[in-house]
């Protein structure tokens, strides 16, 4: 039996507690045995992309010590995933032992391997999937979230004109949300209105990155002033899975 660690990420732990609970719920429904760390801290991603490499090295070193005993590290945050899988080695020359998976990849593997072992109830809503830059362009994961979504009955899916490798950034990437939040949120609003041209009857935007959730949610609330939910893919699944 593989030992599995759910690495939650700062954004989920600090800003998205409800969404984190949904991640737990889905994993439990899928009978995944996993652990979390009580002493989880920052993975170092913000330091890596902010240019603070000394700090990043220090943080990454501590993180690797914590996660290296597990076989699989599973995370709902594509930034943490990219740090573990790519940036630690390419920028810091540090290696991570466990297999690292984004939640969407992991969930899809389980769902596709035991097709009859779960039941998904229909969701009558219209959603759009937003490809996070970190997950899509940087980690090349486009299919798994879409496959998960396609399993849910009655769901209507709006595909924006720019998606996958041409997807438009939410505006929260690259630490811009921490450096110049007003600009971030305006980018997000422009993306939804001018680039994605989201339809009038859209109920929810589903994505797979906590920063995208936070930025798009702010734009929906403050600028679009519309009743559109912005949720994680696990949140969507949590509603459907029985």
């Amino acid at each position: 039996m593989n030992s599995i660690l759910l690495w939650q990420g700062c954004n989920y732990r600090n800003n998205l507690e409800k969404e984190l609970k949904e991640v737990f719920k889905v994993l439990e429904k899928l009978n995944v045995e996993f652990e979390t760390l009580s002493n989880e801290t920052c993975c170092g991603f913000p330091f890596l992309i902010g240019g603070f490499l000394k700090k990043a090295k220090e943080t990454a070193g501590k993180t690797i010590e914590k996660i290296n005993d597990f076989d699989i590290v599973l995370t709902p945050c594509p930034a943490c995933q990219r740090a573990f899988k790519d940036l630690y080695s390419s920028m810091l020359n540090l290696q991570v032992k466990p297999i690292v998976n984004h939640l969407a990849e992991f969930i899809w593997r389980i769902l596709s391997s035991k097709k009859d072992g779960f039941h998904l109830k229909p969701l009558r809503m219209k959603i759009m999937y937003h490809d996070p830059c970190e997950l899509g362009r940087h980690m090349n994961i486009y299919e798994e979230p879409r496959k998960i979504i396609s399993l849910i009955p009655s769901l209507s899916v709006y595909e924006p004109r720019f998606s996958r490798e041409k997807s438009v950034c939410c505006g929260g990437g690259g630490l811009l949300f921490a450096y110049f939040p007003t600009l971030s949120i305006k980018v997000a609003a422009k993306k939804l209105v001018d680039e994605d041209k989201i339809p009038e009857d859209l109920d929810a935007i589903v994505t797979a990155c906590p920063q995208c959730i936070l930025t798009l949610r702010k734009a929906v609330e403050l600028i679009l002033k519309r009743e559109i939910e912005v949720m994680n893919i696990a949140g969507l699944l949590a509603r459907s899975i029985v």
């Binding site: 490798e165 041409k166 438009v168 950034c169 505006g171 690259g174 811009l176 971030s184």
Partner: peptide, 12 residues
Amino acid sequence: AYTCTLCGRCRE
């Protein structure tokens, strides 16, 4: 450099 979202769309 700090106003860039590092989204990689330019590269595409």
